[in-house]
Design a binder for these strands. Sequence first.
DNA 1: CGTCCCTTAGTT
DNA 2: AACTAAGGGACG
Length: 185
Amino acid sequence: MLSSSTSAIICLFLTASPCPSSVDLPRQDSPDSSTRPKLKLTGPESEEDAEKEDNKVHTKKQKMRTVFSQAQLCALRERFQRQRYLNLQQMQELSAILNLSYKQVKTWFQNQRMKCKRWQKSQWQKSNGVTQVTGHFTDFPLLPPSYFAYSIPKTYMASHNCLQLQFQHIWFLQSTDMYTNIHAR
DNA sequence: CGTCCCTTAGTT
DNA sequence: AACTAAGGGACG
């Protein structure tokens, strides 16, 4: 039912992929110990992941912010379009492909979810004011970023039915994502 | 553990 | 100033 429309949107996104070329997948030093990409596709390696162990005696806790390449962002966004929640191995696979760490992918998806949530809230406020709600799903722009519904996954685990009633159509989309996420193995 | 949420801080 | 990667705490 819904998957058809969703996939249609995905196709749109893919065909009209706004990725500014850049075939680069520059190495992103995994600032994290857990789950690093085991296969390095592109050779040039970091050589500076030494900071994690306290070898840098007392250089402050400088936050190391990695700048994702356009190719990486494009791939992440494309994936997010159709799947907002990835399970462990899906994230590992994706991180390996993009040469990012597992934690980076996990963090990116979380941040993206929050961003989406913020965006939705603003949209809702907008429509709440004067512009009346025309439809349910069609209110959101179809092309990137096509932020459909968001929802709360933690409560999905706990009380699925409760939230399903609460969010209705919005939840339906989300629960579909979660469902495919959990059961697609 | 993963996620939500808020916060911090690097990059543009 | 906006965006957003990453840190940290709370919760299940």
